[in-house]
Amino acid sequence: METEKEQIKDFLSIESEELKRFIDDIDTEALIQARDLVLKAEKNHNRVHVTGIGKPGHVAGYAASLLSSTGTPTYELHGTEAVHGSAGQVMSGDVVIAISNSGETAELKATVETLKRNGAKLIALTGKKGSWLAKQGDVTLIAGVNQEGDTMNKPPRASILAEMIMLQSLSILLQNAKHLTPQQYVKWHPGGSLGASIRESEGK
């Protein structure tokens, strides 16, 4: 039986290999298309929302916060509440980023169908190219891995990191398109060590 140290080493080895493969093959053109879809929506005074079910729902919260803090106001949309009234926060022409590793999650299907009927544009973020969600996207971002990092290969670990990397990459493209400066950034992040570090650098 493996020692605890060996277990961790094996996990990290698998995860790092999976993420390296994903990063080497990342679809830059799809990211550019996603950026342009968001910029077009903002130009038309529309908004951006992020949604997911389960653990991708937590990724959605992080993405909404990251994008908002880097110049793209973004709202987290609860993946199941959307079909119970919360879809009202999404207007025709808004962009919704929907996250699902399998791309087949039943609850998310209902949400996506509702939002598309209401005129939303969809950025699909999934690990499966041929999935239902992938086929629904106006733009589709593939963040797929073969191994999550453990023998069961079920609990989402590497796939969650791949989704986050894809969304972080999108945030970089949007941030640079808007020429975000430290002075603008600190307006949205005045507290904590980040805000303090920017203010201190301005005072030098």
Rank of each mutant, 00 (worst) to 15 (best):
N44D: 14
N46I: 04
R47P: 01
R47Q: 06
V48Y: 07
T51I: 04
I53Y: 00
I53Q: 02
G54L: 11
K55N: 00
G57T: 00
H58S: 01
H58N: 00
H58W: 09
A60K: 04
A60G: 02
G61L: 05
Y62S: 01
Y62R: 06
A63W: 06
A63S: 05
A64Q: 00
S65E: 08
S65T: 08
S65V: 02
L66S: 01
L66N: 05
L67V: 06
S69G: 06
S69Y: 09
T70C: 00
G71R: 08
G71V: 05
T72S: 10
T72E: 13
P73M: 02
T74W: 04
Y75E: 02
L77R: 05
L77P: 07
H78L: 07
H78Q: 09
G79S: 05
E81H: 08
A82D: 09
V83R: 07
V83I: 04
H84A: 01
G85W: 14
S86K: 02
A87D: 02
V90A: 06
M91I: 05
M91A: 15
S92L: 01
D94N: 15
V96N: 10
V96G: 03
I99Q: 12
S100F: 08
S102L: 08
S102A: 09
T105L: 14
A106G: 10
A106H: 08
L108T: 11
K109L: 10
K109R: 12
K109Q: 12
A110W: 10
T111I: 14
E113K: 09
E113W: 04
E113C: 01
K116H: 04
K116F: 06
R117W: 02
R117D: 06
N118L: 13
G119E: 15
G119C: 04
K121C: 11
L122R: 01
L122W: 12
A124D: 10
L125A: 04
L125S: 12
T126F: 11
T126C: 04
T126N: 08
T126E: 13
G127M: 06
K129A: 15
S131Y: 02
S131H: 01
S131F: 07
W132N: 13
L133S: 00
L133I: 02
A134S: 14
A134L: 13
Q136A: 11
Q136H: 05
Q136N: 13
Q136E: 07
G137N: 11
G137C: 11
G137S: 07
G137F: 12
D138V: 11
D138W: 11
D138P: 14
V139R: 13
V139K: 08
T140D: 14
L141Q: 14
L141V: 09
L141K: 06
A143R: 10
A143P: 13
A143M: 09
A143H: 10
G144Q: 13
G144P: 04
G144D: 07
V145G: 09
V145P: 12
V145M: 13
Q147E: 15
Q147Y: 15
E148N: 15
T151G: 12
N153K: 00
N153R: 09
K154W: 07
P155Q: 14
P156K: 08
P156V: 04
R157Q: 11
A158R: 01
A158S: 11
A158M: 09
S159D: 01
S159L: 03
S159T: 05
S159C: 10
